[in-house]
Amino acid sequence: MTTPTASTGTADTVLEAAGVTMRFGGLTAVRGVDLTVRAGEIVGLIGPNGAGKTTFFNCLTGLYIPTEGTVSYRGTRLSRKPHLVTKAGVARTFQNIRLFANMTVLENTLVGRHTRTKEGLWSALLRGPGFRKAERSSEERAMQLLEFTGLAAKRDHLARNLPYGEQRKLEIARALASDPGLLLLDEPTAGMNPQETRATRDLVLAIRDQGTAVLVIEHDMRFIFNLCDRVAVLVQGEKLVEGSSEAVQADERVVAAYLGTPFEDAPGAEEAAEVRAAEEQARAAGHGPAVQEDTPRAAAPEDAPRADRPPEDRPPGDSPPGNHTPEGDAR
């Protein structure tokens, strides 16, 4: 089923996940996923809702301990403690923004420096020259990152008061503050408008150019296919396809996954047959426009769950043209 990764274990491999499986009781959220990220690469991870993308991220960063499988970073196996994973050089952002809401922008970024500084309590109490020097250099690095992400002017604002797009940027700046070799972004453009999405794309490219590999989860197909060197598709906890943007876009299994018919013998097969029958019936009855409208809708990955519903649930005139396909032209 899964496409084997092209080459594993080369010298420039940043992240190597081998056979990662995560079970919650009887539910297997992630099953035997292999993934490699090489230096200077941007890798995308896509999949329908509930495919296990975020669970896989949590396995990588130590928030979950995988039931089976190993995750290694630059050849060394990653610790199972999340703070040690960050220390090793893997930083992340969260799907639902998790900033320190009541700290300022600068303070948020300084917390990101935590693993790269060592000053303890005694040093803080005695305030020797070493402490001052470390604080100053931390602040310099944090300000660099805020300038890089365009937040420098808002250094003293509380994180909670930033507009949504800037909160996302701040989360990235905070993650970058730990000088990571690999940055994991969990839906960095969720809830953004097209301009903000473009700005995020430029930001991610700039991060890659600075030498940080990026692994990104995203639902915005246009964003992913324009950005990533390689895309892996996760469906029902398993890696379905991995390859270049073009290869993944052309792969019929991906289309099938988003349509809700991952396997011919899966329990969904009957329903899919029902859908096809109903569609043909509708075409025969002369509801041309409604069916025509359905096809691009179903192809749009964002609407995949909706396409699962049999068409009889949907009144024929339900979908005015162009209303439900925000990024439908991605394919």
């Binding site: 928030l63 703070h83 930083a91 992340r92 998790r98 320190f100 917390v111 993650a175 730990s178």
Partner: peptide, 9 residues
């Protein structure tokens, strides 16, 4: 959770 993910023990 976020603090731990930022490397805070």
């Amino acid at each position: 959770t976020a603090a731990v993910a930022m490397g805070v023990n």
